[in-house]
């Protein structure tokens, strides 16, 4: 199996077959992770740089663990302890890293398009670990894997993404991926935080959470990103909770089994209540487990294809 691109920059333009291959491979890796020795030698000798220009715990740990489970060598670069503080430009940083002969760069950056810029500059494969308000493809892949695992399918499901859609790279990647796999996608949130053109992506807009809950099989509840709320688009977190918060009461009123996802970290009592986040319909911790498997799968599939031999041979 070969992915068309040697980078994973987003899910926009990634085919159903490719997403299927990534998920199938991820399920195999999930079994590896459950073994007494949860490690395979496949990427021995490969070097991966984790280039994180934005704060991240879960995603960076998840990538790092995935890399180590595949036996790759990893380097971590975070802006708080690096040459960026000394004024180095992104291009200079990239050229220096390239000179160290590395195979992969996993990049998170606050600017949309930064990994695309990187991919044009270097020979290594680039994996986007979240760029600005653009895409976060591995998060969407692990979300879809978790839905597939829980409900046995994705095609035909009604998946509603709730929260700040405007600033959410998770929402964008999920919309692209889920539409490709044939799900019906909706978004729900304050009108100020819904992009105006979102319906052109084939997405239904739900102004009220009750309407979303009445139709959704899956809710993907986004974190209210306080750091991206400087423009006054949201009056207060308290008002947000009243209008869009996922509470047990709201769930009970629907009387339907709605699977609840959340990319983390959770603001308990804001976008989701504790008894929902820890309740029987929540798959939030499955998402974290699946994240490692999905990232192993992506790295594995991108790592192939450097050789010249066709096919798998006799032995």
């Amino acid at each position: 199996m070969q992915l068309k691109s040697r980078h994973l920059l987003g899910l926009d333009g990634v085919s159903r077959e490719e997403i299927g291959a990534i998920m199938d491979t991820a399920f195999s890796f999930k079994k590896v992770l459950k073994r007494p020795i949860p490690k395979v030698p496949t990427l021995r000798g490969k070097t991966i740089v984790n280039l994180f220009y934005e704060a991240s715990t879960r995603t960076r740990f998840s990538f790092e663990l995935a890399e180590k489970r595949l036996s790759a060598d990893t380097l971590n670069f975070s802006t708080s302890s690096s040459s960026v503080l000394k004024g180095e430009t992104l291009k200079d940083t990239i050229r220096n890293i390239e000179a160290m002969k590395i195979d992969f760069v996993v990049m998170r950056h606050g600017a949309s398009g930064a990994p695309h810029f990187l991919a044009r500059c270097i020979d290594a494969s680039v994996v986007n670990a979240g760029d600005g308000i653009h895409e976060h493809p591995t998060q969407a892949l692990l979300d879809m894997m978790t839905i597939q695992e829980r409900l046995g399918k994705i095609k035909g499901l009604q998946v509603v993404i709730v929260g700040d859609i405007l600033h959410s790279r998770v929402a964008r990647s999920n919309i692209f991926g889920l539409k490709t796999l044939g799900a019906c996608v909706g978004v729900c949130g304050p009108a100020t935080l819904i992009p105006r053109e979102v319906e052109s992506l084939g997405v239904t807009v739900y102004p009220h959470i009750e309407d979303a809950l009445a139709e959704a099989d899956v809710l993907n509840v986004l974190r209210i990103q306080l750091e991206r709320q400087k423009g006054g688009l949201l009056p207060s977190t308290r008002e947000y909770r009243q209008l869009f918060g996922i509470t047990r009461q709201r769930l009970e009123q629907t009387n339907r089994k709605v699977t609840i996802l959340h990319p983390g970290p959770i603001n308990r009592g804001v976008e989701i209540d504790t008894d929902v986040a820890d309740g029987p319909f929540s798959v939030i911790l499955d998402q974290v487990t699946n994240g490692v498997a999905v990232r192993m799968s992506v790295l594995y599939l991108l790592a192939g294809g450097k050789g010249k031999f066709e096919g798998e041979g006799n032995e």
């Binding site: 291959a21 491979t25 000798g45 799968s297 790592a303 192939g304 450097k306 010249k308 031999f309 798998e312």
Partner: peptide, 10 residues
């Protein structure tokens, strides 16, 4: 693995 034209199916 390093010599194959594509990643074999796992």
């Amino acid at each position: 693995f390093q010599r194959l034209a594509e990643s074999p199916v796992v």
